[in-house]
Amino acid sequence: MERILGHVKSKRRYNSSGRLEQARRNRVAILEAAERQLGERGYAGATVAAIAEEAGVSVETIYKAFGGKAGLVRALYERGLAGAGPVPAYERSDDMREHETDPRTIMREWGLLTAEVASLVTPIRLLMRSAAVHDQEMASLLEDIDNERLKRMRHHARYLKDRGYLREGVSVGEATDILWVCSSAELYELLVTKRGWSLQRFAQYVTQFMVVSLLPEKP
């Protein structure tokens, strides 16, 4: 009897693992399809039905997992925020600043991460901005993600203040605003999308902007 029960339990664990893997594959397929459909047709033109057909899933699966088209846009944005590496960008950022003591090195690493993340989130962020003009759900989502980004920039600014890295006279509020500008899709759009800057040049510019604006001059 024990052998029979053990076999049943093992089989259940295997099935559960298989279902989780299938759900993960479905999620990847849905987001890839959503990214293509939104990029080609825009927010108004893309439909959940077309995304479901391309991804090979049911419409109900998308609504259950994401809650609709606005949920897909948010999921794409959050995927972009994680960056291109195996470890999410925000985790890499927090780990780096806890171990690094040179503020200029911290700024350089933030510049690199900003460029990495901006290259992924800017297209979806600009789609939100365009759709928000006529779609209240998108307008609300755009406001939410802007508030979330501002909160994280304030978190970084307070860290700089607590470590004594900020130049005398630079408040947490001013540092927050500067970091807010550096991490904006608009800055990336102007310099990279419209002026053709490379990611390396953009990262260097963001780094220098933060150093000059926030840190004391070298003695």
Rank of each mutant, 00 (worst) to 15 (best):
E186C: 08
E116W: 02
L187T: 07
Y77K: 11
A34Q: 01
V87Q: 01
R149I: 12
Y165P: 06
K218I: 06
W110R: 09
S184R: 13
P88E: 00
L76A: 03
D162P: 13
R154F: 04
E32V: 10
V87G: 06
R167P: 04
S198M: 02
S130L: 09
L76C: 01
A33N: 08
L20E: 15
S130F: 09
L142F: 07
D94M: 02
L76F: 00
I178H: 11
V59H: 13
T105P: 06
A185C: 07
G196H: 11
A139N: 01
P219T: 05
V87E: 02
L81I: 01
S93I: 05
K161R: 15
Q136H: 13
V192A: 08
Y159H: 12
V172W: 12
A70Y: 02
A131M: 08
H7G: 15
V172I: 15
L142G: 13
T61M: 12
D144P: 03
M210W: 07
M96P: 01
L126W: 08
G71S: 01
A139S: 03
A132N: 08
L76Q: 01
R201L: 04
M96C: 04
K151F: 14
S17M: 14
Y205W: 05
A118S: 15
V87A: 05
A49V: 12
D144R: 12
G42E: 10
T176A: 15
K151D: 15
R149P: 14
S10I: 07
I106K: 01
L5C: 00
R97Y: 12
L38P: 08
G80S: 09
E60H: 14
K11F: 15
G85P: 03
V48A: 11
A29H: 06
L38C: 09
R104C: 04
M153N: 14
A49E: 11
L160Q: 01
L166K: 12
N26F: 00
V59I: 09
A84W: 09
Q37S: 08
G6R: 07
R104H: 06
V181M: 12
L81W: 00
A52S: 07
A50K: 14
N15Q: 14
A44T: 05
P123V: 09
Y63T: 06
A46F: 11
E21F: 11
P88F: 03
E100R: 05
E78D: 02
G6V: 03
Q136K: 09
N147W: 15
G45H: 08
G164M: 11
A118M: 13
T122C: 05
Y90S: 02
A185E: 07
S130A: 09
F66R: 04
L81K: 11
V73N: 02
L72E: 04
W180D: 10
P86T: 01
L120A: 05
N15R: 14
I124V: 13
L112A: 15
E168M: 15
D177L: 12
L38A: 05
N26R: 06
G71N: 05
E98V: 13
